[in-house]
C-alpha cells in the first residue's frame, strides 16, 4: 500500500494558492481542527473550511484528541434546506441515532458512544484501483476541501431530519485511487472494535457493518464522505470520524465510522440486505411508492414535528439522481 501524501497529487503551490483564495474570499478559514478557534461563521451552502495550521492536527494526534475544542458552538451556514425546511437542532441530530454497534435504542446511542475513542484513524482505499492507499484522517481534512452540505436524511423507519453536514465528495477520494475499468461497485466497511462497541459483542447483525454503492452512485456529486456537522467534527454517535452520506437513499446506506473502501466487480453484500433480504435491498432508494413490507413509506415524520409529511421520490433529489435508475424496475430493485 502506498501512503498518499497531500502534496503528491495536488501540487503544493496550487494547494496553497487555493487557500489564499479562500481566505481572500472571506470564507471560513481554519481547519475543521481549528473550527473551534474560527470566529468567522460559515457562509452558506458550499462554504469552505480549509486547513490553516497543519501543526495543530499533529499536536492533537499526539494527544489522541478529536479535531475540535469541545466548547465551540455548533454553527451552520444556513438555517434551511433548499426546500425551505428548517435544520434540525444539533441536539436532535446527535441524540437520535441508529448505530447498532452501540445500542439498538436510538436515544441511548449517544451515551454508549461516549466511550468510543476513534483516534488515531486511517481509511484504506483498496480493491480494483490503480493506486491503492491508506490515508490518515488528518490528511483527509487537509487534502479534501471540506464544505457544508445541507441534506435531508430519511430513515427507513419513516422519520427524517435536515442536517448540515461538513464533508467532501466521495468522487474526489475515488479519483485519487484511480478505479480500474473492471470496478463496478464500491464496498464500505465500518470499524470492528467489539471492546469499544458493545453492540458488536452481540449477535444482532453480522459485524462489521458493510454497505455498498454502484460506482456511478458513488461518483455522483451529491454523495459525500462527511467528517463533520454544524461546523463541528462528527460526534461518535454520528459515525466519527468519517462516514458516508447518500441523501437520496435510506439512512442505513450511509455507513458510519468507515475504515475500508474497496472497489469491486461484484455487487457487495450489505449488512441489512443479508439480515433481511426481503425487507432491505441493495439500492434502498427513498421511494414513497415502494413500501417496506412492514410499514408504508408514503409518509414520514420530520423530527421536531407532529403529524406526517409526504415522502418525496428520491428524498427530493429526483432531478439530480433519477437518471441513474433509468429503465430499472424500482419495485424489484428496492
Amino acid at each position: 500500500m502506498i501512503k498518499i501524501l497531500p502534496s503528491e497529487i495536488t501540487p503544493e503551490h496550487v494547494y496553497l494558492n487555493r487557500r489564499k483564495f479562500m481566505a481572500a474570499a472571506g470564507a471560513a478559514v481554519g481547519s475543521l481542527a481549528l473550527a473551534a478557534c474560527s470566529t468567522a461563521p460559515l457562509t452558506g451552502r458550499g462554504a469552505t473550511i480549509v486547513e490553516d495550521k497543519p501543526s495543530a492536527a499533529t499536536v492533537r494526534r499526539a494527544q489522541n484528541l478529536p479535531p475540535a475544542l469541545a466548547h465551540t458552538e455548533p454553527t451552520a451556514g444556513a438555517d434551511r434546506d433548499e426546500l425551505g425546511d428548517p435544520l434540525n437542532k444539533f441536539e436532535e441530530i446527535t441524540n437520535y441515532n441508529n448505530f447498532y454497534e452501540f445500542s439498538t435504542n436510538k436515544e441511548a446511542v449517544a451515551v454508549e458512544a461516549a466511550k468510543f475513542n476513534p483516534y488515531p484513524w486511517q481509511v484504506k482505499v483498496t480493491g480494483l484501483v490503480n493506486n491503492p492507499f491508506v490515508i490518515d484522517i488528518d490528511d483527509i481534512y487537509k487534502r479534501y476541501t471540506q464544505e457544508e452540505r445541507i441534506y435531508r436524511l430519511r430513515c427507513v423507519e419513516a422519520w427524517s431530519m435536515v442536517i448540515p453536514w461538513v464533508g467532501f465528495p466521495l468522487a474526489s477520494l475515488l479519483k485519487d485511487a484511480d478505479p480500474k475499468s473492471a470496478a463496478k461497485y464500491v464496498k464500505f466497511v465500518t470499524v470492528y472494535r467489539p471492546e469499544e462497541m458493545r453492540g458488536q459483542r452481540m449477535n444482532i447483525l453480522e459485524w462489521p457493518y458493510q454497505e455498498g454503492l454502484r460506482i456511478d452512485e458513488a461518483m455522483h456529486p451529491l454523495t459525500i464522505l462527511a467528517t463533520g456537522m454544524y461546523g463541528k467534527p462528527l460526534t461518535n454517535q454520528q459515525g466519527a470520524p468519517i462516514r458516508l452520506v447518500v441523501p437520496w437513499k435510506y439512512g442505513f446506506k450511509s455507513i458510519k465510522s468507515i475504515v475500508t473502501i474497496e472497489l469491486t466487480e461484484e455487487m457487495p453484500a450489505t449488512t441489512w440486505s443479508t439480515a433481511a433480504p426481503h425487507e432491505y435491498g441493495f439500492y434502498a432508494n427513498v421511494n414513497p411508492t415502494v413500501d417496506h413490507p412492514r410499514w408504508s413509506q408514503a409518509s414520514e415524520r420530520r423530527i421536531g414535528e407532529f403529524g406526517r409529511r409526504p415522502t418525496l421520490m428520491f428524498n427530493g433529489y429526483a432531478e439530480e439522481v433519477a437518471h441513474l435508475y433509468k429503465g430499472m424496475d424500482l419495485r424489484r430493485s428496492y
Binding site: W295, S296, A298, S299, R301, F306, R308
Partner: peptide, 21 residues
C-alpha cells in the same frame, strides 16, 4: 393524533389496509 396528525386518508390507506401490524 400525534403521529398521523388525524390524516385519515393516510391512516386508512397506508396503514390500516396495508400493514398487518
Amino acid at each position: 393524533g400525534l403521529d398521523y396528525g388525524l390524516n385519515l386518508k393516510l391512516i386508512v390507506q397506508d396503514a390500516l389496509l396495508n400493514k398487518p401490524y
